[in-house]
């Protein structure tokens, strides 16, 4: 499992580095990078915490990943997940979290 960081949207706030349970994210040459993608558990804590939705979750090819991604943002008492399939279609799911 792993996450991908879009360095164009990333504002280098460092929240993801602070909270990653596996200590896997770090700043390197003014970019946030994942030190070992295969070490990621897929908990999505960084995906949920990223204030600019710069982090997305994807399935690695070892378990059949074809490019679908998940991003998340918080709005009021809800988490809004955006799931993009390999054809580029996006579906949104709203979940009460508070």
């Amino acid at each position: 499992m792993s996450v991908r960081i879009n360095n164009k949207s990333c504002n280098l706030c460092g929240i993801c580095i602070d909270i990653c349970p596996g200590n896997l994210l770090l700043k390197k040459e003014d970019k946030v990078v994942i030190r070992a993608p295969e070490e990621c558990w897929d908990c999505a804590a960084c995906v949920k915490e990223c204030p600019t939705q710069a982090i997305e979750l994807y399935l690695p090819s070892e378990i059949g990943g074809r490019g679908a991604t998940l991003r998340a943002k918080k709005e009021g008492n809800e988490r809004i997940w955006a799931c993009k399939n390999p054809a580029g279609e996006i579906n949104e799911y709203r979940i009460k979290i508070k």
């Binding site: 990943g65 998940l70 799931c83």
Partner: peptide, 16 residues
């Protein structure tokens, strides 16, 4: 599943 284990949602999306 999004509340607990989002990867299966990706699996459905990948398999369309």
């Amino acid at each position: 599943f999004l509340n607990m284990s989002p990867s299966i949602v990706l699996q459905w999306a990948d398999r369309e």
